[in-house]
Amino acid sequence: MSQLNSSHAPQLVSDQGEVRANGWTLLADDEAIGVDQAVLSFARAVNELDGLNGRYGVRIAPGDDVRLLTPFMSKIALIEVAFPGYRDGRGYSTARILRQDLGFDGEIRAVGDVLRDQLFWMMRCGFDSFLLKDADPAGAIKYARSLYINAYQSAADGLKPVWALRHPA
């Protein structure tokens, strides 16, 4: 069930339960962008993306204002949303703003202290991949998807809220 304090090495899993290799590399701010699939810090992305070509990953920390990335959406393929502790829920708002306000259609990945008991909420907010310290990442996704069929409110996953099911158009 919950994998708090887990010692398992993080594995990348998609919201469909596919476990795959992570091709992205998080760069230090003084590191030259010499690799494909480079993940930039938020500050660096805001300062440098304007002058860069290609598509990048960006690591967002909880306090970062994701809307500062608005001008660069076309240059971003991946946004890693950091969860330094599972109790810090700012990343949920970050993901919904990306999907529903900024129209971001790239990958939104949860990294850090990500628990299988939170995957359901994360998927609803627009996350579609997870770096998960879980013995069975695919099983964790399956579990999260099995919990609730409906939701009372609309979010970023396209699920119709219960009121829409009660009053079909």
């Binding site: 599972y86 109790r87 810090d88 829920g89 949920y92 708002s93 919904r96 939170q118 359901f120 909420w121 994360m122 609803r124 907010c125 609730y148 939701a151 009372y152 409110q153 979010a155 219960v162 009121w163």
Partner: peptide, 14 residues
């Protein structure tokens, strides 16, 4: 009550 039940964005507020 219904809107706030299992609200995915507001389950880990400050």
């Amino acid at each position: 009550r219904q809107w706030s039940t299992f609200h995915p964005e507001f389950t880990f507020l400050p």
